[in-house]
Design a protein around this nucleic acid. Structure first.
Length: 199
DNA sequence: TGGCTGATGCGA
DNA sequence: CGCATCAGCCAA
């Protein structure tokens, strides 16, 4: 079942980030479907989160989409190289987001290998937000994409994950965020080889 | 196996 | 100027 709009419009972005572990992310680009199970996410909690691009309700051309009603894509360029894919959550004017950091390849593996320039399947095919986007074919053209549509979407396959199979820890690469850098808002599937970092 | 670094473009 | 990254390099 494709996740409906009201999955994304709920107010607790940390809870949504945790719930997205075990869901399945797919893209259909040029008629080719690729994707797999989400195994790593991070929550970014809008205006009150120093690590969030929308901290203090910063509103620019780049962050504008974050203030939309949940259920759309926020894609931005980092380090001049990588397109990071986020899912916007919460109601209109609450700029929360979940960064998708890693998936376990499932569908369209041949295409993902092509996009990555890989000869054979390796754990880093989709482990990490930059490379996962490459494998899935996501770039800034998908800024604002409706996630209840047929280009990028998330499915609930009713996979049962015991609470203790999900690990949490500080988010990656946000040392600039002061005390907020320590918040345990990164979630991953314990022991899964497709996660970008073990701890 | 782990730490360091260059690549690369745009937002603020 | 520095960034929600990654791969390749080098030392050990």
């Amino acid at each position: 079942m494709k996740l409906p709009k009201d999955f994304y419009t709920r107010p607790n972005v940390v809870e949504i980030a945790r719930e997205l572990i075990g869901k399945h992310l797919y893209t259909c680009i040029d008629g080719i479907i690729t994707g797999g199970m989400i195994v790593e996410t991070e929550a970014y909690a809008g205006e009150n989160d120093k690590a969030c691009h929308a901290h203090l309700n910063r509103r620019t051309q780049r962050t504008e989409i974050m203030y939309s009603e949940g259920g759309v894509a926020y894609v931005y360029l980092v380090y001049g190289i990588y397109n990071l894919f986020n899912i916007i959550t919460n109601v209109k004017d609450k700029a929360d987001a979940v960064l998708i950091r890693a998936i376990e390849p499932e569908v369209g593996v041949e295409e993902m290998l092509l996009r990555r320039g890989f000869q054979g399947i390796k754990p880093n095919l989709t482990a990490g937000p930059g490379v996962a986007s490459i494998a899935l074919g996501i770039n800034r053209k998908h800024y604002g994409e409706d996630l209840t549509g047929n280009t990028i979407w998330v499915e609930d396959k009713s996979i049962i994950l015991p609470e203790q199979s999900i690990a949490t820890g500080p988010r990656i690469g946000i040392d600039y965020a002061g005390e907020d850098a320590q918040l345990p808002w990164r979630f991953w599937l314990k022991g899964n080889k497709w996660v970008s970092r073990k701890k």
